[in-house]
């Protein structure tokens, strides 16, 4: 591909791919936030809060993810072509699954694709980092489950001393904060991860102004996806897997935001969908009868694993073919 395109053209294509990837991320994931506020405020206000949260997280902590996959996991610097292949494979599968309205993780797609590309191009993959990521994927939902139960227990113990109007007001306020925090964490972790594909491309050296322009372009992508399509995935999670009260939703969202934020501090790409699911299960099982669609849950877990393997295979296959052909 390098033979077909100049470095500048390659970077432009990569930026476009990243903007589109961010667009699909907004489409796929941010409904977790807007959907939860739909009962409280207008969709426009919910979207605005989500976008402000994402922008803040992206600007303040997005840089923590710029060496997460390219640098920490894939230790050998790989070429712009390889980065583009990894990005396009992630984008294609992420888009295809979003179109089928299946909750899918950007992190699963990205890590799978780049591991595949790195394996085919004989780049060094840090087994420690890989184990760290895989372990975090397994542990994070359970960690979130625990955090959600803890938050729920605190809420249960506190509410006895206050009236229903006050409980309702606190729920409203905390849900706003939780939605902002979730958006913030999503911006820091996932959008920061997307930014890394362009920043880590070593064919061009970007000035501060150019880097800011790229950041804004990627943010424009996620903002557009959020504004245009942010409604269906929240229903899949919230209504089909677990049915939750408002307090339980708050506990799940706060737990998910906290876990995502913690993992961002360690530059670990994390799936917000997966941790939110853990939080929902935790909050759902905290008290009283639990209504969990076990079959739906198992299908979702199975799909997540399969998608990661599929991305690895696709990344490996395409990179292998390109290396063979050119």
């Amino acid at each position: 591909m390098v033979a077909f395109y100049s470095p500048i053209e390659l970077v432009v294509i990569l930026i476009l791919a990243c903007v589109f990837l961010a667009f699909v991320l907004g489409w796929n994931n941010s409904s977790l936030t807007t959907g939860n506020l739909s009962n409280l405020v207008t969709y426009t206000v919910a979207v605005a809060l989500t976008l402000v949260g994402m922008l803040t997280g992206f600007l303040l902590e997005g840089s923590k993810m710029t060496h997460s996959v390219l640098g920490k996991l894939v230790q050998t610097p790989i070429g712009a072509t390889e980065i583009l292949i990894g990005t396009l494979v992630s984008l294609t599968l992420f888009l295809a699954l979003t179109l089928t309205k299946i909750p899918v993780s950007l992190s699963n797609c990205v890590v799978g694709s780049f591991v595949g590309v790195a394996l085919a191009s004989k780049a060094v993959i840090s087994s420690r980092s890989l184990i760290e990521i895989l372990a975090s994927w397994l542990i994070a939902p359970f960690f979130c489950l625990g955090v959600a139960i803890l938050i729920y227990e605190v809420a249960t113990r506190s509410e006895g001393s206050i009236s229903l109007p006050t409980v309702s007001w606190i729920n409203r306020l905390v849900l706003f904060a939780a939605v902002f925090y979730v958006s913030y964490s999503l911006g820091a972790n996932n959008v920061g991860l997307i930014l890394s594909f362009v920043i880590r491309t070593n064919v061009l050296k970007f000035s501060v102004g150019e880097e800011l322009g790229i950041e804004l372009a990627i943010y424009f992508g996620i903002a557009s996806g959020t504004m245009l399509f942010g409604k269906s995935i929240a229903k899949v999670l919230g209504e089909k897997i677990v049915t939750l009260s408002q307090v339980k939703t708050v506990a799940a969202m706060l737990g998910a935001a906290f876990v995502t934020w913690i993992l961002t501090q360690f530059s670990i790409p994390v799936s917000l969908t997966q941790v939110v699911l853990g939080g929902m299960l935790g909050a759902g099982s905290a008290k009283g009868p639990t209504v969990v669609n076990t079959r739906g849950l198992m299908t979702m877990i199975w799909r997540w694993a399969a998608i990661t393997v599929l991305c690895t295979a696709a990344g490996y296959g395409i990179e292998y073919l390109l290396l063979k052909l050119y």
Partner: peptide, 17 residues
Amino acid sequence: SSHWFKLLSRGEDEVLQ
């Protein structure tokens, strides 16, 4: 204090009234 809670949850209190 409960006074502040009361003040801030005024919207809910108004609905109740």
